[in-house]
């Protein structure tokens, strides 16, 4: 899959409490994305266009197990490219699914506003302004299977394993 989008840059150690502030956990899912990054970048979500790409430094998504990857996906972010991604956050990306790649060197290779071209399956990233190409970590086959199934809940549903609420 090919993803092309405008780049927004974020620093190291971005945590889930700023991606998805605590109080939004109690809001309906559709109302959560507008509050993304409100503690550290208020107003940012109004500037985001569908398909934009987040480029981040080390340890993106540190913190809680809350469905913060879903918030970025629902906000319309096309892909996350980070120097490294917190393991729990990465699993939540796989399960949504939300396209996210670890790409060493990405933080220095892009300026905010650049356009990134991502070949997701091959995990290659190109800066269209400079022509620089970076190689990221390819998702293992087993995780691509979850991605292609439309996420973990779709996978379980297709296998007939989920039922209705117990109430």
């Amino acid at each position: 899959m090919k993803i092309t989008g405008r780049v927004w840059k974020f620093e190291a150690n971005i945590n889930t409490d700023v991606i998805m502030p605590g109080f939004t956990q109690l809001l309906p899912p559709a109302e959560r994305p507008q509050h993304a990054f409100s503690p550290n970048r208020p107003g940012w979500t109004k500037l985001v266009q569908i398909g934009d790409i987040i480029v981040a430094d080390k340890n993106f998504g540190t913190g809680s197990s809350r469905p913060a990857a879903r918030v970025l996906k629902d906000l319309g972010i096309g892909c996350l490219l980070a120097e490294s991604i917190n393991g729990l956050f990465f699993r939540n990306c796989v399960n949504e699914p939300f396209h996210a790649l670890e790409v060493v060197g990405v933080i220095d290779a892009f300026q905010e506003g650049d356009v990134a071209e991502v070949d997701f399956d091959k995990a290659t990233v190109t800066n269209t302004r400079t022509g620089q190409v970076l190689q990221g970590q390819v998702w293992p086959e087993a995780l691509l299977k979850i991605l292609n199934a439309g996420g973990i809940m779709s996978l379980l549903e297709s296998e007939g394993l989920l039922g209705d609420d117990y109430i």
Binding site: P67, R91, N92, N95, M153, L162
Partner: peptide, 22 residues
């Protein structure tokens, strides 16, 4: 290890999960 809710539901259904060993 902490996992998201949907990841835990996968384990509830199958009895297993995956890890990339670090």
């Amino acid at each position: 290890r902490g996992l998201g809710t949907t990841d835990i539901l996968y384990t509830f259904c199958t009895g297993q999960t995956w890890f990339k060993v670090g």
